[in-house]
Design a protein around this nucleic acid. Structure first.
Lengths: 147, 147
DNA sequence: TAGAAATTGAGACTCAGTCTCAACACGTAT
DNA sequence: ATACGTGTTGAGACTGAGTCTCAATTTCTA
């Protein structure tokens, strides 16, 4: 049985004359194995642990394709390398990032979206995506620090 | 005569028992030479062209210090390496980035700030900074593409 | 002037990500 | 069947921003 995301990815690939190879399927499964943020290396290691040897090159290539298909987006943070997160089955959300403990709180606020649409309009800008990251101290760390 | 930013940087360094060395001054001057976004390598090259040889290591170290002092902030984009921009003498602003031509439009909107403060409050989060990037097609590129 | 602490440059190093290229898969036309 | 074209793969070399190391040097303070 083929999962919904497999179907979507296959369709995207077909549309571009590309192939849904076994390697691509393995990578897709690993990517959707859980619903957290991850980075390319997590996939490399995850697959290796599961006994599937897929080359780094293929993994990077496939992640790019997944971003192209809209099934993943790239979440850049202040760190050096990109992180990914699923879009399929999730609403858009932004992030509060604690600079103390690294915790990442996902937020979803329709007001932001509305406000952004307004600003884009003012500039004749047609938005396709946005990314909002707010850095600071989360509740836990704030509590720890006060006295 | 010492510029305002030099004074601020010196004070920051003093407060941490650090020194305002000739190299750090050269780097600071180069950084404030113009008011655009730049990356570490621009400083390396800028100084070299001006006949000052300051090592990459010192430049990276000093850029970190400048971020620490609040005179610069790190603007990460979808590219691999960080970009910097001045904060001194500028209001906070966010960015509209055209994925077609790379143009970067700076926006500044008090409504965003207010909304963000509200959301942070809801989560007991104390924000120290934020970064909003909206990607899409700018007016020029949009016009070019429609017929 | 001596000693402690900070700083510097050169270059080795790291590491995520990219590129190259030969080997392979697979569909289609001959 | 055969040949061709196009897409794909893995191994490993490569890239390039950024970091680290360390001996030599500078600066501050006593």
């Amino acid at each position: 049985m083929e999962s919904a995301e497999e179907k979507m990815f296959r369709q995207f690939l077909d549309g571009d004359g590309l192939k849904f190879t076994p390697e691509r399927r393995l990578i897709l499964q690993e990517v959707f194995r859980n619903h957290r943020h991850f980075e390319a290396d997590d996939i490399v290691i995850g697959l290796r642990n599961r006994g599937s040897r897929v080359s780094r090159a293929s993994i990077y290539r496939t992640l790019h394709l997944l971003v192209g298909s809209g099934l993943l987006i790239n979440v850049y943070s202040a760190e050096k390398h990109g992180h990914y997160e699923h879009t399929f089955g999730h609403d858009h959300h932004d992030h509060l990032i604690c600079t103390e403990c690294g915790r990442m709180i996902e937020i979803s606020d329709p007001e932001f979206e509305a406000q952004q649409a307004r600003v884009c309009n003012q500039h004749g800008f047609v938005a396709t995506s946005h990314k909002l990251e707010i850095r600071g101290i989360c509740e836990c760390c704030g509590a720890k620090k006060s006295f």
